[in-house]
């Protein structure tokens, strides 16, 4: 018998092992749900999977009687729009700030303290200010995501920029490169995969800001919906929505990872 330290699962058994805890959770839920529904068929706390399926098809497959819209897909579309727009702004601004402060010492000395201070402000504490300044419309929600995530991306890109070996900058200069050429041809392309990494890491925070903003002031969106139906204790709607948000987050993460592999083949092996 080998030491347990040295036993490595095969690919297939690793997959099975990985699915096992998930499966156990589902089974435990089903048992608990059945027990509660048996005691009280009107129990709302732990709806059965068929109840959740019904609620989901009501939201996603049946058009709203009054407006003719599919609530579930409308919510998804609004939320994704806000999230992606916010992330896009944060990524572009963060990349620009990170590149300039990371590459140019004068810029770094001038703006690094400011960025550090800004990054320490809890973004959610700014939400009331954003509502006052930008009103309750789309802008304040997008602004919250952008403001919350930009400092993180800027600081991360600044660090990554400084990690690029100085030898490369010297080499480019000995070939005659000026400052903007070094920034655009040497540093920027090498920072792009790092930017995708930073965006992946900050997506979790992005969802947090999105749902918080939608919960407080909105008329549609995934976060708005779960906070709305909470009043009726509609766990049969909330749970599918939470599962869907998780699923979207997973897909976004995987798409970014795939994009990074396809666009920057030289980055995967950490080539220097």
């Amino acid at each position: 018998m080998k030491r347990i330290l040295n036993i490595k699962p095969s690919r297939f058994s690793a997959l099975c092992l990985g699915l096992l805890p998930l499966l156990i959770c589902v089974v435990i839920y089903m048992i608990a749900s059945d027990l509660r529904l048996e005691a009280n068929p009107n129990d709302k706390l732990l709806p059965s999977f068929s109840q959740m399926g019904e609620a989901w098809s009501r939201m996603a497959l049946t058009p709203n009687v009054r407006t003719g819209e599919y609530i579930f897909w409308g919510d998804t579309w609004s939320s994704l729009q806000r999230l992606l727009l916010g992330m896009l702004i944060a990524a572009s601004v963060g990349l620009l700030i990170g590149l300039l402060t990371g590459a140019i010492p004068l810029m770094g000395a001038t703006f690094s303290p400011l960025i550090t201070v800004l990054s320490l402000i809890p973004p959610l504490a700014l939400l009331p200010i954003l509502f006052i300044v930008f009103g309750l419309g789309e802008l304040s929600k997008v602004a919250l995501i952008a403001i919350g995530i930009t400092p993180f991306i800027a600081r991360d890109i600044q660090r990554r920029c400084q990690e690029i070996p100085i030898e490369q900058l010297i080499k480019a200069q000995t070939l005659g490169a000026n400052t903007s050429q070094v920034l655009i041809r040497v540093l920027l392309p090498q920072l792009m995969p790092k930017l995708l990494d930073a965006v992946r890491l900050s997506l979790g925070a992005g969802w947090l800001f999105l749902i918080a903003a939608e919960a407080i002031a909105s008329t549609d969106g995934l976060g708005y919906r779960i906070f709305l139906v909470r009043r009726y204790m509609s766990m049969d709607v909330i749970l599918p929505y939470v599962a869907w948000i998780t699923c979207l987050a997973f897909i976004l993460d995987q798409v970014l990872a795939l994009l990074s592999r396809k666009l920057f083949p030289w980055h995967v092996k950490g080539g220097h």
């Binding site: 070996p165 030898e167 010297i170 040497v186 920057f264 220097h272």
Partner: peptide
């Protein structure tokens, strides 16, 4: 210049 390491652009 040619350094011992990092002399070429990895991307």
């Amino acid at each position: 210049i040619v350094f011992q390491h990092y002399s070429v652009f990895p991307h």
